[in-house]
Design a protein around this nucleic acid. Structure first.
Lengths: 245, 245
DNA sequence: CGCAATCTTGAATCATTTCAACATAAGTGG
DNA sequence: CCACTTATGTTGAAATGATTCAAGATTGCG
């Protein structure tokens, strides 16, 4: 992949699902991209508290933001897919409050904070698009707060399957009938605030109810209507409607 | 209160705890303020899905962002205090994913989105401060995700008491020894993903352990070290260190 | 003073965890 | 290519943290 080539394709799909991105803005984004690298599965690329002067765009693979407690239990705060900035917020937070880890082998690109500052100075509409992108992360966090606080294990699990379908579809990585989600039941448990044992039982329940089938990193949606109903899924929070920022 | 007078004081305290705000930026903020209004306790001022073309700055009182499920159970995603924009993110989301409600009688000011757009065009550093402010909300959401997913009821409750102490202190509304938090145990339960009955038991436990005493909307911190330990509270996520945005 | 909201406590129930054992799949080196 | 090891998935039974239901106490308010 040449510098900038292909690197921002998924990001552009994600942004253009929400608002227009002009050729000049596209060029500005491309210019902001620094080095492209591979990251091995299970590698934590940024640790909470670390000072960073660049953000990371995920080009391919799955990453997550996670926090842990002294006991060693871990909670994933967000799953990231191709086209997501995994830490665009480090631009204003400086020291991240969480760790960032690759769940699968990943390709990432770095974007220096100086380049982001320049965008806010010279390309305000593009800056608003990036601001939107961090606001979308926050919206996803809020939905997870609702899930963790008030949905039971079955509904919460179903909800995550809905969310990932919708988000992956935006960047062309999911069909109506299913998608690849190459993570373990233990990873899922860390997203859902459950134990992996219980996730296993819940997945069986979804399978036996002919609702959805998660196996070997592959999600099959057997009955979308039923899945949405169980999850009480309302995609409003994913902000899929076009707008003018 | 005259237009702009006093209205942005707490907001300025909040921002200046993190970065400098120039007199010109202060003036720009003041200019962005529209009408100032009172809101009665329990009133929901914005409903999920509504189109809005202004954001709301909380000047006095307590508000919250909440979502609910069909069953009627409600989850509060964030508590807001004086100086917080309760819905700055509506600037890029257009349709909010949650409701916003006053928990106590409140004073609020509206800020038209057109004024925010102008700030992004003409005052990029101020825009970055506002972006920071939404990123801080997201950071708070992530900590709540950790609480709801992995902390038990006692630790989660203690954590919320720590968070509110730290946030209120920034705007001069909390002492080391305690602060006013004029909400009911039922409201607390909606923040914590618990039932009000259980919150009541947990508060008793904190009281009997001489850790903290919440009563009649007043939090007394009896043993800060113990409270922080129980909560595993680390204020890093509140981004209290100064930075240059 | 009386009503409604809020707080408090006990007992039974339930969802999820924990512990433990075993099964299957995947990966590595001889 | 098989034997071995390790990671992941599966299931059952007992334990536990939080909920539910129900009743009574306290507080605030018109």
């Amino acid at each position: 992949m040449r510098r900038g080539e292909g690197v921002i394709d998924k990001l552009l799909m994600k942004l253009r699902a929400r608002d227009e991105v002009s050729p000049a803005e596209e060029a500005a984004l491309r210019d902001a991209i620094g080095k492209v690298q591979q990251v091995a599965a299970d590698r934590t690329i940024i640790r909470a508290g670390e000072l960073v002067d660049y953000s990371t765009l995920l080009i391919d693979g799955l990453m997550c933001r996670y926090k842990d407690l002294r006991s060693g239990t871990r909670q994933i705060a967000e799953l990231h897919i191709a086209g997501d900035f995994v830490d665009l917020h480090s631009f204003s937070l400086k020291r991240l409050d969480h760790n960032i880890m690759a769940l699968t082998p990943c390709t990432v690109a770095t974007v220096p904070h100086t380049a982001l500052t320049r965008i806010t100075e010279e390309a305000p509409h593009l800056a608003r698009l990036l601001w939107f992108s961090t606001n979308l992360d926050a919206s996803i966090h809020r939905e997870w707060v609702l899930s963790l606080g008030r949905r039971n294990a079955l509904s919460r699990t179903a909800h995550l399957l809905c969310e990932m379908q919708a988000r992956l579809a935006v960047v062309g990585l999911a069909e109506e009938s299913g998608y690849r989600l190459d993570i373990t039941q233990a990873d899922l448990a860390e997203c859902l605030g459950l134990t992996s044992v219980h996730v296993n039982r819940v997945l069986r329940e979804l399978r036996e109810g002919d609702i959805a089938d998660f196996r070997k990193g592959e999600v099959r949606i057997l009955d979308k209507a039923k899945l949405w109903r169980v999850a009480e899924f309302d995609p409003l929070y994913l902000q899929l409607e076009p707008r003018a920022l």
